[in-house]
Nucleic acid binder design. Structure first.
Lengths: 215, 215
DNA sequence: AAGAGGTTGAACTCATGGGTTCAAACTAGT
DNA sequence: ACTAGTTTGAACCCATGAGTTCAACCTCTT
């Protein structure tokens, strides 16, 4: 028997190649032969691991969505220990989130989801439900803590999270030409700063509304 | 000769049917025969008016994008004469914009653009450039007037417009499951109110920051 | 009535690509 | 070296659908 490690590697390679090609071509235009080439594997091997083009697609999307979500959740980390300068922490987290959102993989995944949602209604479950929704929940948890600590105004934490994410992501779409154009890091930073600024004006605690210059 | 009116009607019917079918199936999965059926027309007639499936797609998208943009620009109208209650006007415009954004046609168009942007890079020109960008510009013009009139804080009008749109549209995507689920009008209204509230807190003139109950 | 231009349906050509088959080659474990 | 499970390439079958052709057919114009 071929080493189990080798099998798993092949499977991973196939899923990775599948996502790459699907991202490049869309579901219908992507042909299995090309996926096999991308993965450095023969066509029958693909069908040996994944029965269908459709299940191949589902698994590739699911893997990509999981990794994207993990990255985003990790980016919220600094908010659990906000330190003394809340603005700086928000800018940092915002910058990180915005960078992830503008990432190639992330954009490709979003495009694929939008495109094939009608043909694969079931991908909603693990891609939308556990995508932006989970992120929003996690962020709302942090917002609740900040409100309790008196560092934000007393409001609905869910709405605070929703609006912070909106301020980050909203300006991104038009500027990136729907994920086509890459955005420079300085521009991303500016977007994050602007979002943090507006957010603090609207949700900051009354006594700390003004920009605090330094410690 | 068949009446010119009849020809034009056929062409319109074809473009409309094309958009409907493309929206339902995506570019690759849509077959020209089905478009012909949808338009109540024979297949060769389609090729008589539009040479290609590709140009058929381009024209259908262009027409849809134009009509969507027109609707959105019209929705900004109330902001040119803001009346005494700025908050109410913002909520009204916001509600209108959000309703348009959540509309079936609009969602379908957005999905198509995302999906086929890689295969038709040229649709960027008339769909993205003259889509959200134009809307943002028009809104920024209104913002500039409001700032000059002292009804908003002195800031960059472009950023004010960007953030207002972000606050409107951002919360929509996750809730509508990327345009799959229809959202009730009361929920849309709530989203618009929340957006107006956050926006006024961040961009309202200092003296008019608080909620003004009535005239 | 005659003719011109657009429309129709059906049949046709041809390329693409999903999925399968199979014999040969490979790669451990014994 | 022997065997079992895997991979490989190439060829194959078959469905789908883009785009074309053509003869019959409207539907106006003159």
């Amino acid at each position: 028997m071929v080493s189990a490690r080798g099998r798993i590697d092949k499977r991973q390679a196939i899923l990775d190649g599948a996502f790459t090609v699907f991202a490049r071509q869309g579901y219908a235009q992507a042909c299995v032969q090309e996926i096999a080439n991308e993965a450095g594997v023969a066509k029958p091997t693909v069908y040996n691991h994944l029965t269908d083009k459709a299940t191949l697609f589902r698994h590739a999307i699911q893997a990509a969505a999981q990794s994207v979500l993990d990255q985003r959740l990790a980016a919220l980390q600094p908010l659990t220990e906000p330190g003394t300068d809340l603005r700086a922490t928000l800018e940092e987290v915002g910058h990180h989130l915005v960078r992830l959102h503008a990432d190639d993989r992330s954009c490709a995944l979003r495009r694929l989801l939008y495109a094939e949602l009608t043909h694969f209604p079931d991908i909603l479950d693990f891609a939308v439900e556990s995508g932006p929704h989970r992120l929003s929940q996690a962020l709302a948890d942090r917002m609740a803590r900040l409100i309790l600590a008196g560092r934000l105004r007393a409001t609905d934490p869910d709405q605070a999270a929703e609006h912070f994410l909106a301020l980050l992501v909203g300006p991104l779409e038009p500027r990136s030409h729907m994920g086509t154009r890459q955005i420079g890091d300085t521009e991303l930073r500016k977007i994050a700063c602007a979002a943090a600024d507006t957010f603090l004006r609207a949700f900051g605690a009354e006594n700390a509304n003004a920009r605090q210059p330094a410690e």
